[in-house]
Design a protein around this nucleic acid. Structure first.
Length: 851
RNA sequence: GCCGGAGUGGCGGAACUGGGAGACGCAGUGGACUCAAAAUCCACCGGGGCCUCGGCUCUGUGCCGGUUCAAUUCCGGCCUCCGGCACCA
């Protein structure tokens, strides 16, 4: 055995097994009623370039779980696809003059290649690509279904508009109020847009959150906040010298006796009406125009509350007072009724506005003890004053009493408001699903006939960076109305890409389905998704839209369940640590390498970790890590460094440690492979030391199984395997041990295989294993073998650990107390002191409480 | 401002139900092997004090207090950091 292995030949091994897996098609899945089904879904990537560490982490978690479940007898559906419509491709077209389709397909190929290099066990036969017309035709099909049932509709709405690019932007493309491409400040512009009526399901979206026991609490909370249900009262106020009333929404009916004015939003339909041909008309028109030019950001960030008087008054029917009506942009048209009753004494915003415009402030609630503040609004509950028959009541009680009174007087009613708005799906962009409608002068909006789907994105659009490229394709726009035969114009808006991802998990199930988006029978077998894995950034958007789509599909009779994702795991981010170097400040690890402080051994202070992102140039390229250490090491590091839901801090040294571990395993098996092959397997350990190994083996199987199952603590599972390998190195192996060693190594390889599948296959082959490891059965543990022969009894005196004793594990309470009290060391420690009581925790400890 | 989550050695993290704080890995230290180095293998590794070198002892899980025989874990009050939402009436 002169031959010394430097490092194990991971590159060769990994390529070899990836090819074999693919050749044998072992990861292809079909419905199988004989096995329990399990659907593992990962948030499919947008193919903007190469895989980044976030992807790698997401898929490594999913693959490890999938492999574990397969070995445990589950029929696992584990698909992959590409969310490939969207802005980066169009941007590349504008910047590099390439065709978005070619660019996207090239990126997909790169990405798929890297995923295969990581050894992920997807059923590639089910791959879906959303920019394929055979995929997006079903977006259009679903749109038509929703249009038919009134769930898709068109209306005029304010949207983010960039002057320089001449186009509408999605909220996420107008971050910080500026256009992501040219940095122009975005404006709000009113345009006719397509919406999905998600608000139709608002109550169900909210109430079914309680069913989602397998979702993280924070995601549930975020969705609940986003939906924003609030209970309140609608009240109408009579406008003086007018037949009309103004309707407001409030959650504080207890403050109605403190109303001193009323505010309507600039977009409120009555705003202009109220001042028509009156003294204040010009002032109000100017103000509305000014607001229209403001960005959403400017409107909400300014401290001072702007607004103008309309010259009109209303009657506060509670007090009989005549109060002014204002227009101000701190009131939003999109929430409630677009008008508010202003109670400056008890609402901070109203307070600030009243101060600015010298409006009266009338206190109607005071604290039960102490004085109300005089420099701000008093928003807490308290004692009612100057509120007619409600005076002296507790304000919380008065809320109900006053609302009853309002309802009796027919001045208003109890009502519920939501923050959730309908989903704006129109995009003035090329690289998206064309919305399948045409506009006919005679017939109006005409949906495309189902048999004419898909409406295909035309080639030959001009990508100038200005406007919607679809507008430049005459042959696309010009069409004829299938109702009347006249010339008609095709819709050039495309759908938000979140439409694609709202049902992709159903398409995986029957990716070749020709006459329906999916086969209901098969969908009902696989769905719902048993484990969804992805980033928390989709907590609201994608996860809410998918829930909405599932309800829609259920109501269309296509599926028989309501919630798409039973369990959700939101993985933590991947971070790069920074180091503090006095001369440079906080820097990334590679810069420390080149710095004088490290060679001198002087410790560098660790700075705050930064999220990996391309813009900060602090990313670790997965490709480089795979090349240097292999896919197995990369997978092992990602799973070992921290539990999946926590942030993962990148560490090159820790990667090296994982690589060392795999080498340690490889060397051990390599050393004994000939002996193992020369012997038949024996499950029974023949030596004393081997029996200890057997116990440790069963303990390890138990720990690894339980850590993965339900808990997803891959890090501690790997730690247990490492501990076991450390034990193996301490084992003085004799000739008698080889048959049992064979059994030990077989089990070890099985335990390792979900984490490091390539090396596991290779080691299996090395010890004469026949079939693929990943198709074998997960090892079972025997509780009796795993059980320790003796237990350690911890002896505490007054709750502090003072001594330990070994005892047989079947020891009774009295026996345990006896041996503890007979122990010489214990005797000396408690000598001369009164024993108040002795606490016994079975199999664990004895606590002697002294007086 | 509101809603979540987290604070444990030099570092990443363990401790599952209130019962031994620091598993496993990294970094570090010492030893074996080597002409030497790397690699590998073995051992040590929170801090302070005592010491006959076997141990003994005090202290320690963001801070202050409480419950308990016993608290990283439960309760109350703070501090810091991270994430989400934010003129939502």
């Amino acid at each position: 055995m002169a031959f010394v292995i430097e490092t194990y030949p991971f590159a060769e091994i990994e390529t070899k097994w990836q090819k074999l897996w693919e050749k044998e098609k072992i990861f292809e899945t079909i419905e199988n009623p004989a096995k329990p089904k399990f659907y593992v879904l990962e948030m499919f990537p947008y193919p903007s370039g190469k895989l980044h560490m976030g992807h790698v982490r997401n898929y490594t978690i999913g693959d490890c779980l999938t492999r574990f479940l397969r070995m445990n007898g589950y029929n696992v559906l584990y698909p992959m696809g590409y969310d490939s419509l969207g802005l980066p491709a169009e941007n590349a077209a504008i910047e590099k003059g390439v065709n978005p389709k070619d660019w996207t397909l090239a990126r997909i190929n790169e990405m798929r290649e890297q995923q295969k290099r990581m050894g992920f066990s997807y059923d590639w036969e089910r791959e879906i690509i959303t920019c394929d017309p055979e995929y997006y035709r079903w977006n259009q099909w679903l749109f038509l279904k929703m249009f038919e049932s009134g769930l898709a509709y068109k209306k005029e709405a304010p949207v983010n508009w960039c002057d320089s690019c001449g186009t509408v932007l999605a909220n996420e493309q107008a971050e910080g109020g500026v256009c992501w491409r040219c940095n122009t400040i975005v404006k709000t512009k009113k345009l006719s847009q397509w919406f999905f009526k998600i608000t139709h399901y608002v109550e169900e979206l909210l109430s079914r959150l309680d069913e989602l026991k397998g979702w993280p609490e924070n995601v549930i909370t975020m969705q609940r906040n986003w939906i924003g249900k609030s209970y309140g009262t609608e009240i109408e106020f009579q406008i003086i010298d007018d037949t009309r009333k103004i309707r407001v929404f409030t959650t504080r009916p207890d403050t109605v006796y403190g109303i001193t004015y009323l505010v309507i939003a600039p977009e409120h339909p009555m705003a202009l009406d109220l001042v028509k041909n009156a003294k204040y008309e010009e002032q109000v028109i100017d103000y509305i125009a000014l607001t229209g030019r403001k960005t959403e950001q400017e409107r909400s960030s300014t401290k001072e509350k702007s607004g103008v008087f309309t010259g009109r008054y209303f009657i506060n029917q509670f007090t009989g007072d005549k109060c002014p009506i204002y227009v101000a942009d701190y009131v939003l048209m999109g929430y409630g009724t677009g008008a508010v009753m202003a109670v400056p004494a008890h609402d901070q915003r109203d307070y600030e506005f009243a101060k600015e415009h010298q409006l009266p402030i009338k206190t109607v609630i005071v604290p039960w003890v102490g004085e109300p503040p005089d420099d701000r609004a008093y928003e807490e509950p308290g004692k009612m004053i100057e509120s007619a028959q409600f005076t002296n009541m507790d304000s919380e009680t008065a809320k109900n009493a006053i609302t009853d009174y309002i309802e009796n007087q027919k001045w208003g009613k109890r009502t519920v408001q939501y923050r959730l708005r309908d989903w704006l799906i129109s995009r003035q962009r090329y690289w998206g699903t064309p919305i399948p409608v045409i506009y006919c002068d005679k017939c109006g909006i005409v949906p495309v006939k189902v048999e004419d789907l898909p409406v295909i994105l035309p080639e030959g659009a001009k990508f100038t960076g200005k406007g919607n490229p679809l507008e430049t394709v005459k042959e696309f726009i010009e069409t004829e109305c299938h109702k009347c035969g006249n010339k008609a114009r095709r819709e050039t808006d495309t759908m938000d890409t979140f439409v694609d991802s709202s049902w992709y998990f159903l398409r995986y199930i029957s990716p070749d389905s020709k006459d329906k988006p999916f086969e209901s029978r098969r969908v009902n077998y696989w769905m719902p998704v048993d484990q969804y894995i992805g980033g928390v950034e989709h907590a609201v958007l994608h996860l809410l839209y998918s829930r909405f789509f599932t309800y829609v599909l259920r109501d269309l009779g296509l599926i028989n369940f309501s919630e798409p994702f039973t369990n959700l795991l939101t993985q933590g981010m991947v971070c790069m640590p920074t180091f503090y170097v006095p001369s440079l400040g906080y820097v990334l690890p590679e810069e420390v390498e080149n710095n004088i402080h490290k060679p001198t051994g002087r410790p560098v202070e660790i700075g705050p970790s930064e999220k990996m992102s391309k813009s900060k140039k602090n990313t670790v390229d997965p490709g480089r890590i795979i090349e240097k250490y292999g896919a197995d090491t990369s997978r092992l590091f990602i799973l070992f460094a921290s539990p999946p839901t926590k942030e993962l801090e990148w560490s090159d040294q820790s990667v090296e440690g994982c690589f060392r571990f795999l080498n340690r395993v490889y060397r051990f098996v390599y050393k004994f492979k000939d002996k193992i092959n020369a012997h038949e397997r024996n499950l029974i350990p023949e030596t004393l030391h081997a029996r200890t190994i057997n116990r440790k083996l069963h303990q390890t199987i138990k720990k690894v199984s339980l850590d993965i199952k339900g808990r997803f603590h891959f890090n501690t599972a790997i730690a247990a395997i490492m501990e076991f390998v450390n034990e193996l190195y301490k084992w003085e192996i004799t000739e008698k041990d080889f048959p049992f060693l064979k059994e030990v190594i077989e089990k070890l390889v099985l335990l390792l295989s979900p984490f490091a599948p390539h090396i596991a296959e290779e080691l299996n082959l090395m010890i004469g294993g026949k079939s693929f490891v990943c198709l074998k059965e997960w090892p079972q543990y025997n509780t009796l073998i795993a059980k320790e022969e003796t237990i350690t009894i911890v002896i505490q005196i007054n709750g502090k650990v003072r001594h330990k004793l070994e005892a047989p594990c079947d020891i009774t309470e009295n026996e345990a107390k006896d041996i503890v009290m007979q122990d010489e060391i214990v005797k000396t420690k408690i000598q001369g002191k009164e024993i108040r009581k002795i606490i016994y925790v079975p199999g664990k400890l004895v606590n002697i409480v002294l007086g």
